[in-house]
Write a protein that binds this DNA or RNA. Structure first.
Lengths: 164, 164
DNA sequence: CATGTCTGTTTGAACACTCAACCAGTTGGG
DNA sequence: CCCAACTGGTTGAGTGTTCAAACAGACATG
């Protein structure tokens, strides 16, 4: 062993190809999410994070989810979710009720008014997702994208809370 | 013409595969950017958007870029960039000066202190990007990711400002 | 050379998110 | 039992982003 390279490793910079991929990913994610946020803000008056909360609740049994489970499926911190649900509750789209089995937990339920708002906004939102993402990709690329994102999720989200 | 389907099209919902890809993309982007933001906030005291500004300036001739050009390469709105550069200027990492050729424009320059901060934070940041993204992907997937993101960018960013 | 329009940038208010601190309920040993 | 450690959730302060409005300089058209 003649060098210290293995003991004090220097930074492994990105290769030219990795740099291109990284800049493209940054641009695509920021512009895509920015575009979806702008569309929802304009048409519905709330950001994509709020839409995700309503959408996940609408698929849950009794349209109800425990706060921490809801936080898991929408990739939100407890604090962020608490603030967001507070706003949604003010507008009458969800309600909060204490859980009966574990008195620490809070259950969050989508109201009929919330369901109506979601039903009203879903077509426009889905159309935007399709237009900006799936219309730009071949069917093979959709499969590749899913595999790539799941590989990234495996490293970041060991519990796998956002994959069904 | 017997139906109105072609005149009043119904929503084309996402297929099962598209839904899986969409949820995976949402999870991967949010968790990855969240993780990078947290790492930079903890180690450097500023978010990824600020890092991007410093990094892009460091590659520019004279470490200087016009505000609107800088906004283009970091995918920021003019307003967002103006606020962010204001904060960076307070900390002494960039300076603003009026452009000589077009008196409407403002030139933004990375200071030596700003360069030092960037040099200090770059290894940790690159390591985080590598760890959470590229270490999870095969070389083929890196290429696929670049093509996918560029396809998305073609639809969202006609001017191509974030691809050199 | 006047005037309307467009471009580049900044500003302030409204809003969303983060972080750290906190409170209440639960759990598992002494 | 009792108490410490942990879990689920909320809160408020601080910070970043968005949106609409404003403003100055450039440009073009009559």
């Amino acid at each position: 062993m003649s060098t210290s390279a293995t003991i004090q490793p220097v930074t492994r910079w990105l290769s030219a190809e990795e740099q291109r991929a990284w800049l493209a990913w940054l641009g695509a994610t920021e512009l895509l999410m920015g575009s979806l946020d702008a569309q929802l803000q304009r048409d519905a008056g709330f950001p994509h994070a709020y839409y995700a909360i309503l959408a996940q609740l609408s698929h849950a049994p009794d349209r109800t989810l425990r706060m921490s489970d809801l936080a898991g499926v929408v990739n939100a911190s407890p604090s962020r979710l608490s603030h967001a649900v507070g706003k949604l509750e003010e507008r009458g789209w969800v309600t909060r009720s204490p859980s009966t089995c574990d008195k620490r937990s809070t259950m969050c339920t989508l109201t009929d008014a919330g369901f109506d708002v979601l039903a009203e906004q879903a077509p426009g939102h889905v159309e935007a997702v399709r237009k900006h993402l799936f219309d730009a990709l071949t069917p093979e690329q959709v499969g590749q994208l899913e595999q790539i994102c799941n590989a990234v999720l495996d490293g970041l989200d060991p519990s796998g809370s956002c994959r069904r």
